[in-house]
């Protein structure tokens, strides 16, 4: 039996919706969904507020979005600010701006330019983070983790000296870990590169370790 075709939803202006199941959702302006929203594709320009959980095959965002529950998405793209109170799970996340997550943030590919604040674990098979502001996470784990300070960060630093691209995490674990301007208690990995401006309590590695001359590492342990 074929699944009944889901209705599309198009909103321009300021609206409140009760949520539900949709095909494509397009929002231009401001929209509040009072409960869960489930859709194939959602594209938002402006401000969107989902008070329940959001499930979307694809989420494209320009502007601001807040999710009161969990966000499950295939692809997440766009720029702006994304706040998720609970967990964020996505296959492919490519985002410019700021992401705030109350719990874990789990992704297949996570490519970010900007800043994030994750209260739980950030996990990604491939993480590429270009920092523009201060990034925070409790734990970071995954396959290949690359953290860099964006070149543009220097420019922002001129105008706003408080916000400078840096990362603070308790522990970072990955098969390949490349860090810059990171403060962490423990870094574990097979191939570890500690770049400029890092302050690491303890590095545990199995294959290779590179430490930049401007990095501080208190303890380095090679494990067989």
């Amino acid at each position: 039996m074929a699944e009944p075709r889901k209705q599309d939803l198009k909103i321009i202006g300021e609206t409140t919706s009760s949520g539900g199941q949709f095909g494509n959702v397009r929002i231009t302006g401001q929209c509040t969904f009072r409960s869960d929203l489930d859709c194939n594709r959602i594209s938002c320009i402006g401000q969107t507020d989902v008070q329940g959980n959001l499930r979307a095959g694809e989420l494209k965002l320009t502007g601001e979005a807040a999710v009161g529950g969990t966000l499950d998405a295939g692809r997440v793209g766009g720029r702006g600010q994304l706040n998720v109170s609970s967990r964020l799970r996505g296959e492919q996340i490519q985002f410019t701006g700021e992401i705030k997550v109350g719990d874990d943030c789990e992704a297949g590919d996570l490519a970010m330019l900007g800043a994030f604040d994750v209260h739980g674990l950030v996990s990604a098979e491939r993480l590429e983070l270009k920092m523009l502001g201060s990034c925070k996470a409790k734990e970071i784990g995954g396959g290949r983790l690359v953290v860099r300070r964006s070149r543009k960060s220097a420019l922002i630093h001129l105008f706003k000296p408080s916000s400078v691209g840096s990362l603070v995490a308790d522990s970072i674990e990955g098969d390949v870990v490349e860090l810059e301007h990171t403060t962490a208690q423990v870094v574990r990995g097979n191939h570890v590169t500690i770049g400029a401006g890092c302050q690491i309590g303890r590095v545990e590695y199995t294959q290779t370790l590179d430490v930049h001359k401007n990095a501080v590492v208190q303890e380095m342990v090679r494990q067989a």
Partner: peptide, 29 residues
């Protein structure tokens, strides 16, 4: 297995969340 695989399986919910038990040891969490 690698870190990448472990985290991927966790994400795919092949390994239940409750099995990840955090404890503090002398090297931190």
């Amino acid at each position: 297995i690698s870190y990448g695989q472990l985290y991927r399986w966790k994400r795919k919910q092949l390994i239940p969340e409750e099995w990840f038990i955090r404890k503090s040891t002398f090297t931190g969490q």
